[in-house]
Design a protein around this nucleic acid. Sequence first.
DNA 1: CTATGGCACGGATT
DNA 2: AATCCGTGCCATAG
Length: 467
Amino acid sequence: MFQNQWQQTTTHTSAHLAQTMTLLSLTAAELQQKIDSELANNPALELVEERRCPMCKRLLPPTGPCPICSQPKSEDSEDPIVFISPREDFYTGSGTGTSEVPDEPFASEMIDLPTYVLKQAAADLRVEDRLIAAYILNHLDEDGFLTITPIEVARYHHILPSEVQEIIELLKRCDPIGVCSAHPAEAMLAQVESLAESIEIPPLTREVIQDFLPKVSQHHFSDIARALKSNTQQIQLVANFISENLNPFPARAHWGDVRNPNTSGSEAFHQPDVLIYYLNENPANPLVVEIILPVRGTLKVNQLFKDTLKTVEEEHAVEWKEDIEKASLLIKCIQQRSNAMKLLMEQLVVLQKDYIVSGDKNMVPLTRAKIAEELGLHESTISRAVSGKTIQLPNKKIVPMAIFFDRSLSLRTIIKEMIEREDRPLSDSEIKEKLEEDGVSIARRTVAKYRSMEGILPAHLRSNAKS
DNA sequence: CTATGGCACGGATT
DNA sequence: AATCCGTGCCATAG
C-alpha cells in the first residue's frame, strides 16, 4: 500500500526496512535521543512549528484534527481513542493536566546514577564534602554498592573515616534508598530505617537482616528463630516483610521479575511509551490511549535546503543529497513506527480492556503471533514493537507492554487470591484441585511455580499470619 | 509418606 | 535458531 510512495531503488527500500525495524524496537526515550542527534547532525532535517489544538491546547500529530476534542460527544462511542501524541514538554502527558506521574526519578534524559544521587544530596552537604560524595559515587558498581572502603576514601582525601561514614550515611538516604552501601544487608537496613518513618516494622527485622540474610533466602526460618530466641512464625512475618518491601539491590535497574509494582518501592523510572487513561479521568468515559512520540513539532525535510541543492556545486551536492535522503528516510520510518504502534495498541486495548480496567486476573492469554495475524503484520514486527516498551495504565502503574502477552498472569493472581482468602493453608495439590473445579487444568508443579513467583511461602510455612 | 524445590526435557513462542 | 514455559521425575525436608 505504501511502496509507491518511495523511490524505487532497492537500496532505499532495504535501508528503509532496516531502519524501520530498528526504530520500532526503540522506546520513546531512545527514539528521542536518536531524533535529537539526527536533528543536530543533519542540516536537511528540520523541526517545524508544533500544532496545537485550539480547544485543549494539546500538541497535535502532524495531520488531522484533535483526536480528543473532535470526538462526537453525544454518541458515546465505546471504542477507545487511540492516537499518536507528540511530546508535550517531557512529561505533561495529557493536556488536561491529568496523569501525574508520581515522581519521576530519572526524568528527562537518563542521567547516570552518581549524578542523580548527588543532586539529591547536594543541598545537605557542605561544599567541601560534595567532592568527597562525588568521589564515593564514582566508585559504585552496577548495583550501587561501594567498590572501595570508607578507609580508602578517608586516606585519599585526608579526612577522618568517621566523616566519610557520615557522608555515606547521608547518601544512603537518597533515592535508590540504600545506595552506597557495602552490601545488600546494609542497603536493606537503610530501607528499613526509611520505611520506619511511615509504616510499622515487624520486630526483629533489623536483627534478621543484620545476621541472617543468607538463611532467609534459604528459608531456614527455624534456625533463625532459635538463634534469636523467637518463634518460626515471627521470623516468617519478617521474611515476608523483607521480600515485600525491601530491595537488596536498590540501584539495579531490573528488579527481580514480575513482582508487584505497588508498595513504596522506588522503581519504574522509565518514561512510558504509551499512556492509557480515561477521558477526563472519568471511568465512565472511553479510554484514551496516547502513544508518545518524543518530538515537539513536526519533522520535515528543510525546503530551503532542498531548493539550494540545485544551485550548489558538484562536490557538496552528493553529500547534501545524502543528507536529504537520510532525513526523509528517517521521517518515513518514524511514521511507520507510529503507524505500527497505533495499530498494535488499537488491538491490544480492545482485547485486554478487561485487564486494563479491572486488573490482573482478567488478563486474556495472548500471543504476539495472534496479534500479528490479526493485523497482517509479521510477528517479528510485533515483537519489536512490544519489547522494552512500557505502558502507563489508568491506575497510574507503569508496566512493561510485554505483560499483555503473559499467559500466566491471570492464573497467578487467581492463585494468589485463593491463598489470601484461605482459612487453612492450602497445599499445592489442593489448589490444583480447586482450580480444576473452575475448569482450569494445570499441573501441581506449575501451581508451585506460580506460587513462588508471587513470593508466597509453601503451605506448611504459612500458618496464617495475615495482616 | 507428603509436600516442595531442582533439573531438565519438549513443545510453543518469539 | 534462541528462548520461554509448563511439566514430569527425583531428591530432600519435615
